[in-house]
Nucleic acid binder design. Structure first.
Lengths: 207, 207
DNA sequence: TAGATTGTTAATCGATTAACAATC
DNA sequence: TAGATTGTTAATCGATTAACAATC
């Protein structure tokens, strides 16, 4: 393993590997080859091996990868063993869907706190997350040492919410507002622009 | 304009251009340079020009791009003038959030029909979309000539739902289930795997 | 003409894939 | 040893960026 920078595309695939391993593990599979792993995800086996090689040598030649072992390694690599707390700002339709989305808990991630301007409007289907008014943003973030924030508010206020989150100590933002957030270099922003998916399908159907 | 295949990454950026132009247009801006457009989205001006150049020459040297003109061209390129009907399968939290997501209508796309196994469970906040039981999948798709389907059902049934949609005539699928759908080559699948976003933030915070 | 900005070429950078020695 | 599969190198492929002539 040389210390070359990992391609961004590799990072996107690691979660897929991890989740597929979870699935195989739950089915009692103990050893898996890069071919089997790749086939399950529509990814070439060469790419699976190459991706993993950025982080170490996890397999045995002639044999494959031990499922539980590779899972543990990926947990560490992806930082899932940190048990991050996550704060969600904006409890509209999308925000509520995210809180109730089952996929995160399995991954050691959970939306622990929810903020909204109108705490009354929030329906009670927010699972185990605690709900607070926007005013308490700073308190919630600092007292719980939260580093990850989700922005699910209207575009017009997204930049302001991001600024407040960063000011309170947030280091990574998952942004669902369809605007370009301006942040300093030490803050990681991940845009999840839902319109793009649907428009790109329209594009491919038309061309 | 030569006929080279357009990079997939370019297709992802076209919707961003289009939406930013809509915003500028609503603010009364009539002409915009690739620099201004790029700055608003965090994209280099060279890339903006290169992206557009795959489809034609839309600007005037020394001047820039006429906003309304470029918008019309992008509408055509993205196929937004087709006024696609879209069928959503799965009216859970996420499905409901998608139906109520305001961003699509502005783009000439709209979720016109919703399917779910349990029509009773569906709350009434599904806007103008019509709700049908799963049994009517084929009828809804064929009678309305729908080509785009959204899969927002649990992973266990996602492949089966996709198969049924394709069998009824759907050509493009927006898949929110975190599994790899197996489809023939003439079907376009766009995966929207929500876990990846959050996990990748965890990764970047840990490294 | 002087200044601005496009459209495009060529150079650079980054990601994927093929091939194969190493090794279980 | 024979068969299988990893880890890695080198070749290929694809995307971004710098530079600049064309032109308003």
């Amino acid at each position: 393993m040389k210390n070359i920078t990992t391609p961004a595309t590799t990072v996107e695939r690691l979660p897929l590997y991890y989740r597929y391993l979870q699935k195989m593990d739950s089915q009692g599979v103990e050893v898996i080859s890069s071919k089997e792993l790749g086939d399950g995800l529509g990814i070439p086996s060469t790419q699976v091996r190459k991706d993993l090689s950025y982080y170490g040598e996890f397999g045995r030649r002639g044999v494959g990868y031990e499922v539980s072992d590779l899972m543990k390694n990926l947990e560490r690599i992806l930082g899932l063993d940190n048990n991050w707390k996550v704060v969600l700002v904006g409890a509209g339709n999308l925000g509520q869907a995210l809180v109730n989305y089952g996929g995160f808990k399995k991954l050691g991630l959970n939306i622990s706190h929810v903020l909204d301007i109108d705490t009354n409007k929030i329906k009670s289907n927010l699972g185990s997350a605690e709900v607070y008014p926007m005013k308490q943003l700073r308190t919630v973030v600092t007292e719980n040492d939260i580093k990850i924030g989700i922005v699910a508010v209207p575009s017009e206020v997204a930049q302001q919410v991001a600024d407040e989150l960063i000011d309170a100590g947030i280091k990574a933002i998952w942004n669902f507002a369809p605007i370009h957030l301006r942040v300093s270099d030490d803050i990681k922003v991940r845009d999840e622009d839902l319109s793009i998916g649907l428009i790109s399908l329209s594009y491919y159907l038309s061309n």
